[in-house]
Design a protein around this nucleic acid. Structure first.
Lengths: 377, 377
DNA sequence: TTGATTTGTTTATTTCCTGAACTTATTGTC
DNA sequence: GACAATAAGTTCAGGAAATAAACAAATCAA
C-alpha cells in the first residue's frame, strides 16, 4: 500500500506530532531531496497535509501532520453483546457509531459486519473511499499476522481465521487483535504513549489485561500470551482461580474479584467508587479489601518494572477513580517492591477511559497496519 | 563497515546455519541477482565462505557459512580480578587467552588492554588484521549505545565512558555490556538460542542475572535494567536484602544465598553439589533450603513466562548440576505457577558453562556489533 | 544422449536516494 | 527600503542497490 519510507514518515509523525520536512528528513536519516518527494506523494494521497507555518530566521518552515480525514478505519469490539462498531478518523476520533449482534460463528460475524458497514458510513459519505481497514478486538490469543484467533474461551474458538473471512465478505483489509493489546496500540498511536518506545498498558476492568510495547513495537510473545499478568501468582496458596491454579492476580485485584470480596463481606457495593466511599467512612472490611487488591496490583506492577524496565506503566480503567485508597496502596506497593534505586524512576499513570476503549482499540489496529505495517513480533 | 544487506545476510546465517544463495535470497526477500553480489563481496572480504555442496535434482547448491577465521574479537570480563581476556574467532571459539589486572580507573583499564592486546595476539598473527572489535562485560548498567557505563556498584562508576577511552587507546571498535546481557548475546550468536526470536537467559551463579531477547534483539530496558529479576519480591516480608528491600529472589535462590542458608543451618557445604548430596542422604535442613530456593527461582521463572511469553528460558550455571532436588523443585514451581494451559509450552533448558562465560559473552558483544550492528533497544 | 530441473550469474532497467545548485520566503541591519 | 543573512524546500543530474529476464552451469532421470 505505502512504501517503507512513507510508513516511516507517518510513524515518525504519529510519534512526535507535526514536523517540518527538514526536521523529518533529519530524524529519518534521509536527504531533504528525498523527503520532498515522499511528502509530496503522501499529500497528494490525502494522508498528510500542511498545517502551521513556523516563522524564524530564514524561510519559514511548514509543519506536516496526518490529515484527520485522510484515512478512516472501522473498529469492532467482540467483548460485549451487542458488539459496538465505530468509525474512526486518522486522529483516533470516533466519527460514527453503530452496534451489531455478536455471534460465536465467524461467518455470521462477517456477515453482520458487511451488513452494518454501509449504515455506519451513511453519516460520512467521504469515508467510504478512504476506508483503509477494519480492526476487531476480542478476548483471546491472536497470531502474529493478526489474522487468526488461535484460542478464545469467551467465543469458543480455536484457530478461527476471522480476518480473512471478514476481508472476503467486505473487500476491506481486516485485522484482529487481543483486547488488551488493541488498547495498547491505540494508546501508542493516538494516546499518551505516542513518544514512548517501551511501555506496558494495564487495562483494569472486570478482568485485568496487559500488553507491552518494546522498541516501539507491540510485543505479542511467542504464543501471543505476552502481558497475561492476570494469572501470575501473586498470593502463593491464595484463593483458587477459574484458570485452575491459586492466588492469581485476577482473584484479588480485578473489579470482578473486588466486587466478589465485597459481596462476601456483606457490603452492598456495586462499584469501586462505592467501596472507596465505604472505606473513607472507616469501614474495616472495605479498607481490607482495597488494601489487599491494591497491594496485589502494585506488586504485579513492581514485577513488570523489575522484569522489563519499561519507560512507563499506563493503567487504563473504565470504572472508578484511582486517587483513592486503592490507587494509593497500589502505588506504594509498586514503589516498595522495586529496587530502591529504581523507585520513582518509572512513571505509573492512570487514565480513565470511556466505554469505547475496546472499539477504538480495534480501529487503531487497522490504523496501525495502514500507518506502520504489520506488527513484527 | 558492512552494508545493511550484508549484515542481514550474516544475521540470517548466524541464526539458521549454512544456507545456499537461493535459500538466503528467499528468506531475505531479495532476488537471486542481488544475493549473488552480496555473497561475492562478503566472500572476498573473507567473512563468508563456501562449504558443503548439496546434491539434488538440478544444479547442486553450495552452502555459505561464516568463515571461522574471517573475523576475530577480543572479550574482557571485569567481573573477576585479574580480569580474563580472550580472543574469539567467528564461531565463538576461544583461540587465545590472557589475564590483566582489574582497576577501578577506566583509564588504567584501557591502558592494560592496550598493553595486553599484542601479547594476546602473538599466538594468532593473522588475527590482528581481522580484529574487528573489543567487548567488555561488567556488572552494572550500560546505555543503549554500549558505550557508557551508567552505573556500577562493583566498580564504583557513574557515567563512565569506558568504550570510547578503550577505543582511543587501542584504535579498535569497543563496546561494553552488562554481564547477563552479554551472556544472552553469546547464546544468541553462538549458543543454543540462535534460531529463537524471543527468549530469556537466566544466569545462575553467586548472583542471579537475566536478560531478554525480544523480536531477535537484545532488549535493554528503558534504564538498561530489563531482566533484573534478582531483586523482584518473591517472598513478601522475607529476609532483608542488601538492596534495601525484603524478600528479593537474590536472598533466597542465588548461590550466595544458598551457601549462607546452609552455613546458618550449620551445614558444611561449599557448593550446590555438596548440598544436593546432603539432601539425597535425607538431611532435612538441606532439603528445606533446596526446596525454598528452587521454589523461589521457579516462581520467578513462572512470572517471566506469564509476563513475557518467551519461546525459551535458558538457565546458565557455572556451578552444580540442575538435575537434583533444586532443579526439580524449580521446574515444578515454574510449571505450577503459569496458566495451566501454558504449562509445558515454554521449554526451560539448563546449560552448564565454564569459567569463560563472561569473557566469551564480552567477545560476542563485539561480534554482534560487527555482524548485526548496534542493539536497537 | 537428451530433457528436465534447479542453482547461480550476467545484463539492462528501475527505484530510491544523495549532493549540489537553485528558488523561495522570511528576519535583521545599515 | 535595499540588501545581506539565513534557513526551507525544490529541482535535477548522478549513483547505489535492487529487480526481471535471459542465460550459463551442473546435476538427475529416462
Amino acid at each position: 500500500m505505502l512504501t517503507s519510507s512513507q510508513q516511516q514518515l507517518l510513524r515518525v509523525i504519529s510519534q512526535s506530532g507535526p514536523l517540518s520536512r527538514t526536521v523529518l528528513a533529519a530524524s529519518m536519516g534521509l536527504s531533504k531531496a528525498a523527503m520532498s518527494g515522499i511528502a509530496r506523494d503522501l499529500i497528494s494521497l490525502g494522508v498528510l497535509h500542511e498545517t502551521e507555518t513556523i516563522y524564524g530566521q530564514g524561510r519559514p518552515s511548514i509543519l506536516l501532520d496526518l490529515h484527520p480525514e485522510g484515512a478512516f478505519f472501522v473498529g469492532i469490539s467482540l467483548l460485549e453483546d451487542p458488539a459496538p462498531m465505530v468509525l474512526s478518523d486518522f486522529n483516533g476520533n470516533i466519527v460514527a457509531r453503530q452496534t451489531m449482534p455478536r455471534s460465536r460463528d465467524p461467518e455470521i460475524i462477517a456477515e453482520s459486519i458487511a451488513e452494518m458497514l454501509p449504515r455506519l458510513l451513511t453519516e460520512r459519505e467521504d469515508a467510504l473511499r478512504k476506508l483503509y481497514g477494519i480492526g476487531i478486538a476480542l478476548s483471546g490469543f491472536v497470531d502474529e499476522k493478526q489474522a487468526n484467533c488461535v484460542q478464545s474461551t469467551l467465543l469458543g474458538w480455536k484457530d478461527a481465521p476471522l480476518a480473512s473471512i471478514v476481508r472476503q465478505k467486505t473487500g476491506i483489509d481486516t485485522f484482529i487483535e487481543n483486547d488488551a493489546k488493541a488498547v495498547a496500540v491505540s494508546e501508542k498511536l493516538f494516546g499518551s504513549t505516542r513518544d514512548v518506545q517501551n511501555f506496558s498498558v494495564v487495562s483494569f476492568d472486570e478482568g485485568i489485561g496487559c500488553a507491552h510495547f518494546i522498541g516501539g513495537n507491540l510485543y505479542r510473545g511467542n504464543h501471543g500470551g505476552a502481558g497475561e499478568i492476570a494469572h501470575c501468582t501473586i498470593e502463593p496458596n491464595g484463593s483458587p482461580c477459574r484458570c485452575g491454579k491459586r492466588g492469581c492476580l485476577d482473584t484479588v485485584a480485578s473489579m470482578k474479584a473486588i466486587k466478589e470480596m465485597a459481596k462476601a463481606e456483606g457490603l452492598a457495593c456495586n462499584s469501586l467508587d462505592d467501596l472507596e466511599a465505604e472505606a473513607s467512612l472507616g469501614n474495616a472490611a472495605a479498607i481490607r479489601i482495597l488494601h489487599r487488591a491494591g497491594n496485589a496490583l502494585g506488586l504485579a506492577i513492581a514485577h513488570l518494572i523489575q522484569f522489563n524496565d519499561p519507560g512507563m506503566i499506563l493503567i487504563t480503567h473504565v470504572e472508578g477513580r484511582f486517587d483513592g485508597l486503592f490507587g494509593t496502596v497500589m502505588r506504594q506497593a509498586a514503589e516498595a517492591n522495586v529496587l530502591p534505586r529504581y523507585a520513582g524512576q518509572t512513571p505509573i499513570r492512570t487514565q480513565r477511559v470511556d466505554g469505547d476503549v475496546w472499539a477504538r482499540g480495534a480501529a487503531s489496529i487497522a490504523a496501525h497496519n495502514f500507518l506502520i505495517g504489520p506488527t513484527p513480533n
